[in-house]
Amino acid sequence: MIEVNGLYKSYGTNMAVKNVSFTINKGEIVGFLGPNGAGKSTIMNILTGYISLSRGRVQIDGFDILESPENAKKRIGYLPEIPPLYVEMTVREYLIFIYDLKKVKFPKEPHIEEVMSLVGLLDVSSRLIKNLSKGYRQRVGLAAALIGNPDVIILDEPTVGLDPKQIIEIRNLISRLGENHTIILSSHILSEIQAVCDRVIIINKGEIVADDLLDNLSSNLSKNSKLSLKVKGDAEKIFQSLSDIEQAEEISVSATEQDGIFEFIIKPQENCDITEIVSKTVTENGGIILSYLTDNATLEQIFLRLTTEQIEEQFDEMEEEENETVEETETLEEAEEEKEDNNESDI
């Protein structure tokens, strides 16, 4: 449905997008993830024909965005970061304008009515857009993107500025739309991508640093993630025999607050699953495993690992900075944990 090959975009000497290529098939919901200023919006603006590309090729359903822009644009509904609204119009007037602008073929009134009920705008249809709250304006922007029922829907940070209830509503709507549309969604909120997308493209400094299914990404990384287990028993003996395991790269042990209970943290070699052998070794040495935690990578961690790895490459010699990013990683992880807790309590 969407094919991007070797896309470059430069603003003067500043390269905003570097060699970006990806293909998105019909019916996929893809998340663009990246820190602020990573180039997400630039790529979306190029896909929708708002700005042009410096080099490369973009095709929407086989139509080149430069060679046959009208055919390509006809297939796209776009909600930019700031919804492009004429605030002196009422919601209905604006949607009628967009309908006329897109030269939609569906019967006018029923189609606009349908889109408004889909995004929950029927109550405010005759109000001026300038009197609407941020959340409702966002919905008007989303409604405008849905007018004409385009195959591809591109949403740039669709839930920014919405309250938690609205966020859940919009996410549900996106999931529902995903059943028969191709959707690209950008966000720097990771839980959002996790909630609605099947596949994620992580962008940093204008380059793709990861492009994979969400499940693959987290399982790939969890293969290398540490095991943490609480064990009751003879710490020294268990430590010795654990050290004999070839695949275990690093082992540390520390005493816990409770007497006779120790915490082992084991880092396996790359792409090794050592859970089985570890539990066997511990029990063979008379230890009792009280808890067993695999550090299953969240999207947050994947994201930070991928984006900070790049930074580390660039500033290899600047160790101080590395320490800072590690600290950041920790605080962000804590923040994410808190957020997850909150989400759970919300639900």
Binding site: N45, L85, L101
Partner: peptide, 14 residues
């Protein structure tokens, strides 16, 4: 200024 040109330019019009 209001970025409404995004709505116009991304629409299938010349």
């Amino acid at each position: 200024k209001n970025k409404t040109d995004q709505a116009l330019i991304t629409a299938p019009v010349k």
